[in-house]
């Protein structure tokens, strides 16, 4: 558990300091979630992880039908096999993750020593490096299968990202992610917040815009459009392409910080990955 330094420090801080009423991540979280709870009073905390399917009846029915025989099931099975298959040195993934795949709720977290946000895909490749296995390419393929199995085993756990107030650098990473989410991007000059907060629930042509709250609970996703599984960062790039904005690399600092902010904004929303989207 020594990896979760931010977690331990935070508990210590929380116990020792009476929190001053400064605007910060905790206040952001309250504002963010209250916004969506007001706009969608009929959507429960658990339903927010279902995105547009939580708010559009027609789309919901099609989606529920697909979930009867989920197209991601074979990938979960492949991920389970990979999880149990020993590396050359005899260790398995379990040795890196405290013996259990059900830890997705703690990701991403801020590593104070490395001074960076650690996402689940990074942790998976770190584990492989530690055990002499080559890194898996990010974004799709085998890494998403391992993630899909871990997500499946984490279902029902509540998103539980440690407050970035645990460390000044963590706070800076969070602030960078937040700034990015609210900033206009690309030739169309839309921000993520425009589509997924201000106009969440509206229709853009035939797409119902999903609420930003719950955006991070169900990855990786099998998308009909992709014909395979993909990561949250791949979706970010898809949205940026839509607005003719600058696409970033999988696991780039920009995207990791964005994921850090966005996942913290979903604290308390139950995990329901892997997911299916059209």
């Amino acid at each position: 558990m020594s990896d979760f330094i931010c977690r331990i420090t935070f508990l210590f801080l929380a116990a020792s300091v009476a929190a001053p009423a400064l605007a910060g991540p905790q206040e952001d979280l309250k504002e963010f979630q209250a916004f969506f709870e007001n706009r969608f009073p009929d959507v429960s905390m658990a339903e927010f992880g279902n995105g547009a399917y939580a708010i559009d009846e027609n789309m919901r029915e099609n989606w529920l039908a697909t979930e009867e025989f989920p197209p991601y099931e074979p990938m979960v099975d492949e991920g389970r096999e990979a999880w149990n298959r020993p590396f050359a040195n005899g260790n398995t993934y379990a040795d890196c993750f405290d013996g259990t795949p059900g830890v997705v709720q703690y990701y991403p977290y801020y590593d104070i020593d490395k001074k960076m946000v650690i996402t689940l895909p990074l942790a998976i490749n770190e584990c492989r490096a530690k055990n002499g296995a080559p890194a898996l390419p990010y974004g799709k393929g085998e890494i998403t299968h391992v993630m899909a199995y871990m997500a499946f085993e984490s279902r029902g756990e509540l998103t539980d990202v440690v407050s970035p107030t645990c460390d000044p650098n963590a706070l800076a990473a969070y602030e960078a992610g937040k700034e990015y989410w609210y900033k206009r991007q690309g030739q169309f000059q839309f921000s993520c917040a425009h589509c997924h907060k201000t106009y969440a629930g509206s229709k853009l042509r035939t797409d119902v815009l999903s609420p930003g709250m719950g955006h991070t609970t169900h990855w990786p996703v099998y998308r009909a459009d992709w014909g395979e599984m993909g990561t949250l960062h791949r979706r970010f790039s898809g949205c940026l392409e839509m607005v003719r904005g600058r696409v970033r690399d999988e696991q780039s600092e920009t995207f990791r910080n964005l994921e850090y902010f966005l996942t913290y904004m979903s604290n308390g929303v139950p995990l329901n990955g892997p997911g299916y989207r059209k």
Binding site: Y199, S202, K203, L204, R205, T206, D207, L209
Partner: peptide, 22 residues
């Protein structure tokens, strides 16, 4: 045209199909 104005993404316009409502 989706690759030009794509005004229908957000506006109901007479003669245009499947408009958005932003």
């Amino acid at each position: 045209d989706r690759s030009k104005g794509n005004c229908l993404a957000c506006h109901v316009i007479e003669g245009g199909e499947s408009p958005g409502n932003v």
